[in-house]
């Protein structure tokens, strides 16, 4: 890893000004992705600004929604009584225990790995991302491969998840990395059925055909007969595009069954 100047931010504003003053700076939350990326020299920022001391950690139950601060760890989300079960199970399944003790929700979504779990939960529950500049709907947040709607210097402060009537996440983890080969989040909420798929393409996305089928009939069997075209699906040593196409339906069915 190339050397950099390390800064510890005391607030979001402090982080933003430290970032603005840097030649080519980046923010770091838990560092569970950024540090491996730096080690591989895939990134070589001049400055790294840590958000750990910026006061962004914490979980607030708002009654009809829950707000999770950007630097809240996966372990804290998994253990929180204020977080709905479906969301807890997403956090519980990320990485391993040590990664969950350090990795954060803000870091995960800002990185937007194509196989990350949280993006599916945000899309599936219709969450809102609050930054130091604005609110962004999950549907507008995840743009493409490691790409989000965040501007340069824009920092995630929190994510707010509205309550759902029913929700569940099912993933087929890669046995080594625990990243999702495919993960599907399904939810039934006041504004209808939402289905979000991660791991299958370059970026987590909604599944409109699955949503239509489940809106008509909320049961696993409603997905019988739907086939996902393998074109544009991820294909690597862990699984072909055809394999992932099949996994999308299998995981969607498991999620519906788990949601009840």
């Amino acid at each position: 890893m190339y050397d950099f100047n390390f800064h510890s931010a005391s607030s979001v504003d402090d982080a933003a000004s430290k970032l603005a003053a840097a030649k080519d700076g980046t923010v770091m939350a838990g560092g569970q992705t950024l540090i491996p990326v730096l080690k591989q020299r895939l990134a070589s920022p001049s400055d790294v600004v840590s958000l750990a001391g910026a006061g962004l950690s914490g979980i607030t139950n708002n009654g009809d929604s829950v707000t999770i601060g950007a630097t809240t760890t996966h372990a804290a989300v998994a253990a929180s009584g204020d977080v709905p079960a479906a969301l807890r199970s997403v956090a519980e399944g990320i990485g391993d225990a040590q990664v969950r003790n350090r990795g954060t929700i803000g870091g995960s979504i800002a990185n937007n790995d194509p196989a990350a779990d949280y993006p599916a939960a945000l899309l599936g529950l219709g969450a809102t991302v609050t930054t130091n500049q604005r609110d962004i709907a999950a549907d507008d947040f995840f743009i493409g491969l490691f790409e989000t709607a965040l501007n340069d210097g824009e920092i995630v402060k929190s994510v707010t998840f509205p309550n759902a009537t029913k929700a569940a996440y099912a993933k087929f983890p890669n046995p080594a990395s625990r990243y999702a080969m495919v993960g599907v989040f399904v939810a039934q909420a006041a504004d209808g059925v939402r289905v979000a798929v991660t791991g299958a393409t370059d970026c987590a996305h909604r599944g409109p055909r699955l949503e239509a089928a489940l809106s008509a009939n909320w049961s696993a069997s409603a997905l019988d007969g739907i086939t996902i075209p393998p074109e544009n699906l991820n294909s690597d040593i862990h699984g072909s595009a055809e394999y992932r196409a099949n996994l999308v339906i299998v995981m969607a069915k498991r999620a519906v069954e788990a949601a009840g």
Partner: peptide, 25 residues
């Protein structure tokens, strides 16, 4: 690469991979 866990230590009581944490953190 934060996969094997040989470097696990406790930081403020929680187990963490010390190869995936900066000393300054």
């Amino acid at each position: 690469t934060s996969q094997c866990g040989a470097c696990v230590v406790h930081v403020n009581g929680d187990s963490m991979k010390s190869c995936t944490m900066l000393a300054l953190e």
